[in-house]
Nucleic acid binder design. Structure first.
Lengths: 160, 160
DNA sequence: GTAAGTGCAAATGATTTGCAGATGT
DNA sequence: ACATCTGCAAATCATTTGCACTTAC
């Protein structure tokens, strides 16, 4: 067994390698902070805020600033490696681009449901036909009320 | 001609009356700030940020604070009179509940397209069937790329 | 060596909150 | 009169920016 590094699983280690190659290939530099950030994203598999990622990175690399995480996420997004989504009211949620997906988010309890892109197919087609608009299914979650909240009293507060 | 008040158009004046009656009926108090706020919303017909509304209100009623506008918008929303939507990255957009509608927003240039609710019909039906989730078409805009940006270079920066 | 990346602190923008005084019913 | 609203100032939360120093290449 080789020395334990940032990513423990061999699969993730391989994918991390690919991402770093892609990063370098586009002119980006491979730094400690970036390696750790991508490692953390691979480990957690998405749905992380910048703050959560900064914390995860800090475990092995204390002193990595939140601002650095934001700058790196921005850069990785520009390179097409990372994607961010706006779910409820809080902070943005970051994902690896290869694992991007849509969301339904309950306005009342905040529960998040991951959706296949097919859910948006007919909306995307209609938007393209009527306005020439290409829908991005994962950038903004679709709001609404989840089954639990519909069943409970909460739903009645909003629409009788 | 009667004295000029907050709302000049007779139609809006009538609708304002209805809204104030509804407000009082639910136990809310009719204050200067609220009358002016609803008047401003009627005049502008939606797509206003809290700050824009505060400015509009300030014309006739200087000294109305932004925090008061936020508190009143929150209360009016609780009463079902007003609704807010998250369009791009900026401030929330407030609308009268009676005029709520969905939006497509371009990630690149920020242009906003108002959509009929039918656009969401098939998505809403699928979400209801698979997850028992009731979609709210107007609370979050659907992200994507508008026709102009698709035609220009900008689109190529994002997805080749 | 040089441009790109980072730490740090401070600014930003949107929204919220605490509290004492003013106002609607 | 009494609870509700409001003014005001300050706090909060997510994110961004300026600048001097460090590091990857």
């Amino acid at each position: 067994m080789s020395q334990v590094r940032d990513a423990a699983e061999p699969e993730a280690e391989a994918e991390l390698g690919e991402l770093l190659v892609a990063l370098r290939g586009k002119g980006g530099r491979v730094t400690t902070a970036r390696r750790a950030l991508l490692g953390a994203m691979l480990e957690r598999g998405g749905h992380c805020s910048a703050e959560e990622l900064a914390e995860a990175v800090s475990v092995a690399h204390p002193g990595v600033r939140l601002s650095t995480v934001y700058r790196n996420l921005e850069e990785l997004e520009r390179l097409g490696v990372v994607v961010h989504a706006h779910l409820g009211h809080g902070a943005a949620s970051y994902h690896l681009a290869s694992r991007a997906h849509g969301h339904l988010v309950c306005e009342h309890c905040g529960v998040e449901i991951e959706t296949p892109d097919e859910l948006f197919a007919s909306l995307a087609q209609a938007a393209a036909q009527r306005w020439g608009f290409r829908v991005n299914p994962w950038h903004s979650a679709v709001s609404g009320t989840c089954a639990d909240c519909l069943a409970s009293d909460r739903a009645r507060e909003i629409r009788p």
